[in-house]
């Protein structure tokens, strides 16, 4: 989306990080979704468990 459109439509936000910013955007009636972000190191830890799960074909 061009900058022009961003300024014309206003921000529609994906908030990644500090949850407070999400709530403050909600207070201003802005459209916003919050991402409960975790470092990818933690995600890949979970992912490797998941991969094992798939390979093992848990049932």
């Amino acid at each position: 989306m061009a900058i022009k459109d961003l300024l014309a439509n206003g921000p529609i936000v994906v908030n990644i990080g500090i949850e407070q910013f999400y709530h403050d955007l909600k207070k201003q009636d802005a459209k916003v979704v919050h991402v409960d972000w975790r470092p990818s190191a933690l995600k890949s830890d979970l992912l490797s468990k998941l991969r094992k799960l798939r390979e093992g074909g848990a049932n």
Binding site: R38, K43, L46, L47, K49, L53
Partner: peptide, 21 residues
Amino acid sequence: WYMLLDDELEVLLFTLDNDGY
């Protein structure tokens, strides 16, 4: 789905991984 099983719910993923549903 698996990212929801963090913190105190990680035990579910671990158990699922080792022992199944």
